[in-house]
Design a protein around this nucleic acid. Structure first.
Lengths: 335, 335
DNA sequence: ATGAAAGCGCTAACAA
DNA sequence: TTGTTAGCGCTTTCAT
């Protein structure tokens, strides 16, 4: 980057002062039309672009919000990003995306980087590894507008947006029951994450409401493709195997699906499987996967709207909001 | 964001000048140990974080590179991002990710935003919609280090990193021929993109080298899931249908796969299908999808390495490099 | 060992 | 209508 054109360059060439140039460019009423014309034409000619860095410093605002997500390569989070970008762009803000890769260390670094770069607000979905929340608390103590989404924490008293995990799990399991399942397993995220906890609650209550006893042997703490495949491969060998599985996300469901097929089980005849995410892949497997749509796009939009509300309102009458985005059962052939 | 602590605050409380505080914080040899200790302790206590914006303005460097990609929600591009981030983080740089969503307009806006934000270099994968390249040329004329990857353009004389598309297509089609295919269709990206052109060349030459005539009726300009499903649905009905298909990416392959199955065709017995991308989904379909691995992670790494070479070397002896990342045939059950 | 002052690019209060 | 100046937060040259 050689030398970017500045208003000083324009002022020099035209013999005006830099403030006149500045005002001309921003259409200040005091500036004569001729001056404006001359300045704007030269600016165009030279390809002048305001230095955003200088503006940021002066305005103490970057018109940028930071987004920290666990993993970009996740159809759900990708859709969240799109929702965030839409609202941000509508408000003439930029989005600074950074992924933690489910690493606590990375999440801390990313948070600090956003802080140093003085973003005007932050959206965070906490990584699986994160136990210590002091980096997030640091954001709060700096009074930086903050909204948590999806992977929230009860420890923090801030705005939150998430799926209606409880209800999603409830309708998923109810659906399995209606299809005749008696022994329904759950492959769940760790219940220390609220997402894991809420879905487990939904699972439990759906069973209880249908007079099916909770069986701790049907609970598997597992939320990845390879783990679920491995676990299902050993679990489904036994005679007392589940006849239905509720998986915490689609990838986990696919692992179970592959394991079942490898063992010669028919889906949905021998075992019914339901996921949570409604990813693109759910459509293309055989059988296609019944899943709970989480509306990531909506979550991104709502979280960002909430953030802008904070950014605009400033500190006044802060009362954290919590928003639940409804989920929806998408029935396909795996149940 | 109330009031972030600055060195001025520290200077005031301690009775030093701001320059002393600045030097103390950066361990300048001239500063006495006691002063350093006092300053650092107070800085810690107050939670001082240097204002990156001010530093950027002063240093005329943001230690940030910009990344413009067509779509985040694409396993290939997601892996590219990870590669980019790895190299950038190793060099203590940030990555500013922005997606064009395959929109020309958005791509232009993103480019300008990166320019205004004075990133130190840019990585671009051009959107499908983009014909006019003046926004990219603008970057070049501003002497901003630039590397194109994957979706490159012959019109631009800059560093480029891409898959060995020609070779990938060649081995894909050769594989189909070895498996006995005689009528091999290609579902291809528009050939105005070099990616489309090169893969088509590979397809053609593989056929020619095996004495199979090129049949224009087997060329389908189509690179999305829904389009490919629709097209395959109508094409595969005919008696004279293809017995092998080379798809420009995995999603396109899945569309073809679903259409084939809907028509009662057996894969790979009646029709063999090969994709390009080696996405996660390739593993979980039935049959699993044979595909060409593009090593997106490597592409991201190499492109970023090249970019840093430019950033560090400055303008001197500029000779654009072009790097091809090898591709690999991953054989699964669809062929 | 420490301070004063200039400057990065820009805007705006104050002068003229 | 236009110019001068201060200041956003920081580093660094030049004084002391």
């Amino acid at each position: 980057m050689e030398h970017q054109i500045t208003i000083k360059d324009i002022a020099l060439k035209l013999g005006y002062s830099i403030s006149t140039v500045s005002r001309a460019l921003s259409d200040h009423p005091d500036i004569s039309p001729k001056t404006k014309k001359a300045v704007k034409e030269l600016a165009d000619l030279l390809g002048y672009k305001p230095n955003q860095i200088a503006l940021n410093l002066r305005n103490k605002s970057t018109r940028t919000i930071g987004l920290i997500i666990p993993e970009i390569m996740h159809s759900y989070f990708s859709t969240v990003i799109s929702g965030v970008e839409e609202i941000a762009y509508n408000n003439d803000f930029n989005v600074f995306i950074s992924q933690s890769n489910e690493s606590y260390k990375r999440e801390v670094i990313n948070t600090q980087s956003l802080l140093s770069n003085r973003v005007d607000g932050v959206l965070v979905s906490i990584s699986k590894e994160t136990k210590d929340l002091s980096h997030i608390k640091k954001l709060i103590s700096c009074k930086i507008p903050l909204v948590l989404f999806d992977r929230i924490s009860d420890e923090l008293n801030v705005d939150k947006v998430m799926s209606d995990d409880y209800h999603g799990a409830y309708i998923a399991v109810t659906h399995l029951i209606e299809r005749g399942c008696k022994r329904i397993a759950i492959f769940s995220a760790p219940t220390n994450l609220s997402i894991g906890k809420n879905r487990y609650e939904g699972y439990k209550n759906a069973l209880t409401d249908n007079s099916i006893p909770i069986d701790q042997n049907l609970f598997f703490p597992c939320d990845t493709f390879s783990d679920s495949r491995r676990i299902a491969l050993s679990v489904f060998k036994k005679a007392e195997r589940p006849d239905g599985v509720f998986a915490v996300n689609d990838k986990t469901a696919f692992g179970i699906m592959l394991a079942s097929k490898a063992l010669g089980l028919q889906i949905p005849e021998d075992v019914k499987i339901i996921g949570f995410e409604n990813s693109f892949s759910a459509e293309i497997t055989t059988p296609s996967l019944t899943s709970i749509d989480q509306f990531g796009y909506e979550i991104g939009r709502e979280a960002t709207k909430l953030l802008f509300k904070r950014i605009k309102n400033g500190d006044e009458d802060f009362l954290p909001e919590e928003k639940q985005i409804k989920t929806k059962l998408i029935i396909r052939n795996s149940t």
